[in-house]
Simulated scan of single mutants.
Amino acid sequence: MAKNTFREPERVAKQKKQRRRLRMASWLNDFIGLDRLFGEDNSWPIRHIDRILWVTFLLVVYIGLNHNAERLVRRIQRTKTQVDELRSQYTVLQADFMKSGKQSELSKRVAEIGLSDSQNPPHKIVVKSNEH
């Protein structure tokens, strides 16, 4: 069977929690010597050292994330510039290719070989179905 026990009053639980906090603050005070830094009569920083450390940690995380975001923005801008340059190169190359395929450009290139355009119109070749 279950054993009946008395429930601890809330103030006893708070006192235990307070003692634990004070234990951490006193340990930190012994280790670092914060009372010499702030004075023995000023115990506010020592009592709230856990909150101070938490806020410090959050500030460090915030600064790190801010640096990361700025680095990403710079990388995105650099990539956009590269994309714009490649797009302009593509447009120039495509225009040159389309121009090189015209008949006037082809006739200039084949003139070096000795070929030229025919001055006569093309002849139509008619094949009858029974000659086939």
Rank of each mutant, 00 (worst) to 15 (best):
47 R>S: 04
53 L>I: 04
71 R>Q: 14
39 G>Y: 06
48 H>E: 06
51 R>I: 04
22 L>E: 14
28 L>Q: 00
17 K>T: 07
64 G>T: 00
22 L>I: 08
21 R>L: 09
26 S>D: 13
62 Y>N: 10
44 W>P: 02
56 T>W: 09
71 R>W: 13
45 P>F: 01
63 I>E: 15
58 L>M: 15
64 G>L: 02
36 R>P: 00
70 E>L: 12
18 Q>G: 03
54 W>I: 05
43 S>L: 10
61 V>P: 00
72 L>R: 15
56 T>Q: 11
27 W>V: 14
42 N>F: 08
58 L>Q: 15
56 T>R: 12
31 F>C: 06
16 K>L: 05
45 P>L: 00
15 Q>F: 02
36 R>L: 05
60 V>F: 09
16 K>M: 07
37 L>I: 10
16 K>Q: 09
46 I>Y: 02
43 S>T: 14
23 R>Q: 11
67 H>C: 15
30 D>I: 10
43 S>D: 11
51 R>H: 09
63 I>V: 14
26 S>Q: 13
65 L>D: 09
39 G>T: 04
61 V>A: 11
63 I>D: 14
60 V>R: 14
55 V>R: 10
55 V>P: 00
54 W>K: 13
26 S>V: 07
54 W>P: 01
53 L>M: 07
51 R>D: 11
69 A>C: 07
30 D>R: 15
30 D>H: 15
17 K>W: 06
52 I>Y: 14
19 R>C: 01
35 D>R: 03
49 I>V: 03
35 D>A: 08
22 L>Q: 13
37 L>M: 08
29 N>I: 01
45 P>H: 01
68 N>W: 14
69 A>N: 10
20 R>A: 15
62 Y>V: 05
20 R>W: 07
21 R>S: 03
53 L>H: 04
53 L>S: 04
26 S>I: 07
52 I>K: 12
75 R>H: 05
26 S>M: 09
36 R>W: 04
72 L>V: 08
73 V>Q: 12
35 D>C: 03
34 L>T: 09
44 W>S: 11
72 L>E: 13
26 S>Y: 09
28 L>V: 02
38 F>M: 07
34 L>F: 15
32 I>W: 01
18 Q>R: 10
68 N>Y: 13
72 L>Q: 14
39 G>A: 07
21 R>D: 04
30 D>Q: 15
22 L>D: 10
65 L>I: 08
54 W>D: 12
66 N>I: 11
65 L>G: 09
